[in-house]
Computed example of a mutant assay.
Amino acid sequence: MNKKWLTIGGAVGLSVAVMAATGMSAMAGASGYEAYKSALKSTHSIQSATVQSAAYIQDNGSDLASLKGQFQINFTNGNSSGNVEFSSGGTQRNLGVYRQDGQTILKPAEGDTYYVAEGGKHKHAPRPHTADPETAKQVESVIDTLVGNMKDYVNLEPNSDGSKQISLQLDHAQIPSIVNTIAPLAIKEASKHREDAGNSKPGTGLPLAELNVKNSLPELTTQIQIEQVVVKATIDSSNHIKHQEADLVISGADNTGAGHKLKIHLQADLSELNSTTPNKVDLSGKKVQKLKQVRHGESALTEQR
């Protein structure tokens, strides 16, 4: 499974006022931003974890789509297993997901067919145990530059058990100008390609064909801006991120002039660090439908056995 959830809320920093209020003078020299980066590196080095995730999208307060899932992930060899519940447009689907032996296997709760996609040349390679130090340093430097003065808006609150609470809340005026300039362009461009969303189209018989989440989103064309960013994280006493959540509020208007306020919520909870073993599915004797990648995530049935 894609592990980019680990990078949600990478912009975090120091709040001296909170540190003074807690009276934890031992932490007075460490910024929240540096504390978060340190925990992110420690978390990235784990070999396995169980992840409970949730996400939803709202438009003007109305639900557009939601997702809940639990995954068992081995970050070293790339294997994973889990269950996902999707909901969009009044339709709900449950899906079992497996990544094993270079294949991605999908099993809808309804029906007895297992859909199998070969990894091919674009499959995700297992994560190496160690990253190139120089490359990591350069990437970190770029991120530090982009984050800019957002570091100054972060709260860091140590707890008596050795854990830490990290929080960040930015309103539109506090978001760096470079982000406010680039983000609307990216959002507008993404809105143009709503037809390419999903891994299948209605009528194909493929898993989640009815759930074209991206096409249910409004196409923002003007007055696009980021209204608010809220990030919260819990770092345990072993310096691992155990909980993380983020809220992003985007406003804009569509080509009819109608206004929209989109709220995107993401969260993830990690447990059983370095002691999780993904489940494997035995396809022997099962009804299997092979999938072939066509374009932009769209899949086509190729053969059945």
Rank of each mutant, 00 (worst) to 15 (best):
I224S: 05
L95M: 12
T43V: 08
E134I: 13
T204I: 06
D101M: 01
I178W: 14
N212K: 09
A65T: 12
S88V: 11
I143R: 07
S38N: 12
D112L: 04
K151T: 09
M24D: 15
A258T: 13
D236R: 00
K37I: 07
E219L: 07
N255A: 08
S62Y: 09
I235S: 10
V213L: 08
I57N: 01
D132T: 05
P207A: 06
I224W: 04
G96L: 07
P108M: 01
L291A: 07
K121Q: 11
A49G: 07
M27F: 13
Q267I: 07
Q304I: 14
L95Q: 04
D196V: 09
Q289T: 04
R99M: 13
S216T: 12
A233Y: 01
S42V: 04
I235W: 03
E210G: 10
A26E: 15
L211D: 01
T234H: 11
Q169H: 13
Q169E: 11
Y114I: 10
E118K: 14
Q169M: 10
F75D: 12
V294L: 06
L40Q: 10
S271Q: 06
G257Q: 01
N79C: 10
K263T: 15
V139I: 13
V231F: 15
R93M: 08
S80D: 02
A49T: 13
D171G: 15
A65S: 09
T7Y: 14
V84W: 04
K107N: 04
S271G: 09
I143L: 13
Y33I: 13
V84M: 10
I46S: 04
R295M: 05
R127D: 12
G61R: 14
G162V: 01
S45R: 14
E189Y: 09
K68A: 08
G198P: 03
H260G: 02
D282W: 11
S160C: 02
A258F: 11
Q52N: 12
R194V: 10
T222P: 02
T222N: 14
N215V: 05
L266G: 09
T302R: 04
W5Q: 03
Q289W: 00
H172S: 03
P128T: 09
A109K: 07
E227D: 14
K286R: 08
K292P: 00
A136T: 03
H260M: 03
S163Y: 08
N159S: 06
K201F: 03
S251C: 11
G10T: 14
K68G: 06
P218I: 08
S284Q: 03
T113Q: 12
A54F: 14
N212W: 02
